[in-house]
Structures are given as C-alpha cells and as structure tokens.
C-alpha cells in the first residue's frame, strides 16, 4: 500500500532532532517509524506518523521544513527469506530500492517495511502480486 511519509530537513546543530520530536510529542503526534540519513552538513529525517499533515504544519510553524512524500509499506512474512523474496521480485521488475526501514505498527501489531523505490507504481503492482500480507490505512493513520 502507498502511505505518506514525512521528510524533514535538519541543519547540523546539536539538539535539532530533540526539538523536532518534542514538538511532535507536544502536539500528540505519534511516530511509528523514524530513520535518519545524514551527511557532514545536514540530515534528512524520514518518519511515519499518524497525522502527517498536522505534523508538517506544526513543524513549519516552528521554522522546520518538512515535506510529505509517498512511499510503499508492506507487511512481511515472519519467516527466513521473507525480505529476500520481496527484493527478488522488485529486482526482476527492474525497480531500484532507494532506501528502506522497518517498523512495527502500533495500531495492528504487524511488522511493516517502508520501501522507497525509483518507480512507486511498478513496485506497488509487484507487491500486490507477491505473497505479502495486506495492510490497511487504519494500520498506520489515525482515522
């Protein structure tokens, strides 16, 4: 399923991550998953939250830039080779993975994987034809 991810620009300064997570907590926004990509100069935080639009506006008011992007979320089989078979299927369809990170959905208790590829629609059809557990929006968002 396609889900919304919030990506945030963080300048390279101590406490930036802390300021951001505190703001989200104060506004009762739950972070299900977080991943940090950083360089010597800046960082990009990627998050799955239960209310991405609200999170973006809360951060924006505090002078923090966030943007909402679409990524794929899949539920994996909890058996050896689960991830490998997904990646094989993507590779066979010539879809490249840009980044991925895993999380447990607090709403459903499912183990989920966030995958960003260079061709999201193609990836989605690969996932649909694979042997993966279906997930629903209520697994992720506050609905």
């Amino acid at each position: 399923m396609k889900i919304k991810q919030l990506s945030v620009f963080l300048e390279n300064k101590p406490g930036q991550l802390c300021v951001m997570t505190k703001l989200l907590a104060e506004n009762e926004i739950n972070i299900s998953a977080i991943s940090l990509a950083d360089t010597s100069g800046f960082g990009i935080v990627r998050m799955i939250v239960d209310d991405p639009e609200k999170a973006q506006s809360v951060l924006s008011d505090a002078g923090i830039i966030g943007m909402i992007t679409e990524v794929s979320a899949i539920a994996m089989n909890d058996v050896p080779g689960g991830l490998s078979s997904v990646l094989n299927a993507l590779s066979a369809a010539q879809v490249n993975v840009e980044y991925m990170y895993a999380f447990v959905s607090v709403r459903s208790g499912k183990a989920l994987m966030v995958v960003q590829t260079d061709a999201i629609e193609k990836a989605e059809s690969v996932f649909q034809s694979s042997d993966l557990h279906a997930i629903s929006p209520s697994d992720i968002y506050r609905i």
């Binding site: 300048e11 390279n12 300064k13 930036q16 100069g41 002078g63 923090i64």
Partner: peptide, 8 residues
C-alpha cells in the same frame, strides 16, 4: 556553505 533552518 552551511544550509540552516528557515528564519534561523
């Protein structure tokens, strides 16, 4: 060059 937060 350092990219910093808006209005900082």
């Amino acid at each position: 060059v350092h990219l910093v937060n808006p209005n900082s």
